[in-house]
């Protein structure tokens, strides 16, 4: 199996200078993620599942350990990589699907969804065509495509968010409760898209409030426990 991400001894602590104290999130975490594999992060609220995803994306800086990402251009330790490399990988190989849309105001839904393709060098018309395809697939009605998502309901915003995040196949996808606030039809469209990406070899690791939504996709589970070093991944039959 092709390795995509090799996490070794990853530790995250938040230094809270104004309180003069440190807040440990997780420590000494090691696991490997392969192409086409789907890992579920599990554990109680506050155990550090979302923190781990953000650390993998480098929105949070780890304090120790390594994040060896096997990119198309070589292997790089994301834990210590230059910002410019991390930014490059985010544009080309690593996607992060959040549970909220973080869109600029006064930008139309189809433009927001098309943006990753525009940044990847696709022409405007081709990007917009794909954007409309994915907006339709997630159940956003055509009369909303030119409207500003900042005025949409939470559920509709999330559909735009998913269309944007999944419009281009990445090598690794980080999924932070993407099914939250989705209706049944959009959930089914999301699962179908994730299954398609998985079959194409995209590696995925995610947090789900209702893991049953993606039960058919899950290969392994990482059970996070409060402040407990995790030495190996439990193979959970699902």
């Amino acid at each position: 199996m092709t390795t995509i991400l090799d996490v070794q001894g990853l530790t995250k602590t938040f230094e809270m200078h104004h309180l003069g104290q440190s807040l440990p999130a997780f420590e000494d975490l090691s696991f490997t993620l392969h192409a086409g594999e789907f890992l579920l992060l599990s554990g109680p609220n506050g155990v550090g599942k979302s923190t781990l995803l953000r650390t993998l994306y480098r929105s949070y800086l780890p304090v120790a350990g390594h994040l060896w990402f096997h990119s198309r251009e070589g292997v790089i330790d994301m834990a210590n990589a230059a910002d410019i490399d991390v930014a490059h990988l985010r544009r080309t190989e690593i996607g992060f699907v959040t549970q909220f849309l973080n869109a600029r105001p006064r930008v139309a839904a189809e433009e927001i969804v098309a943006e990753p393709m525009r940044l990847a060098g696709y022409g405007r018309e081709e990007a917009l065509e794909q954007a409309r395809h994915w907006l339709a697939a997630f159940g956003v009605k055509p009369d909303l495509w030119r409207a500003y998502p900042t005025t949409f309901s939470g559920g509709e915003q999330q559909k735009v968010n998913l269309a944007r995040a999944l419009i281009l196949p990445q090598r690794m996808l980080l999924l932070d409760e993407p099914t939250a606030s989705l209706d049944k039809g959009a959930r089914a469209a999301l699962v179908a898209r994730l299954a398609e990406l998985k079959a194409q070899g995209v590696a995925m690791i995610g947090v789900f409030h209702h893991p049953g939504d993606v039960a058919a996709l899950i290969d392994r589970e990482i059970p996070l426990k409060p402040k407990t070093p995790i030495e190996e991944i439990a193979d959970v039959a699902l």
């Binding site: 230094e15 809270m16 929105s59 949070y60 991390v86 930014a87």
Partner: peptide, 30 residues
């Protein structure tokens, strides 16, 4: 990317989301 300056020095530099979500320096946190 963001560079944070104070008293004529660079105290922190990083990707914008990292600097805002996980600021490292006491001044940036403030």
């Amino acid at each position: 990317r963001v560079m944070v300056m104070r008293h004529g020095r660079v105290v922190e530099e990083g990707l914008a989301d990292q600097v805002f979500q996980d600021p490292q320096h006491a001044y940036t946190q403030q």
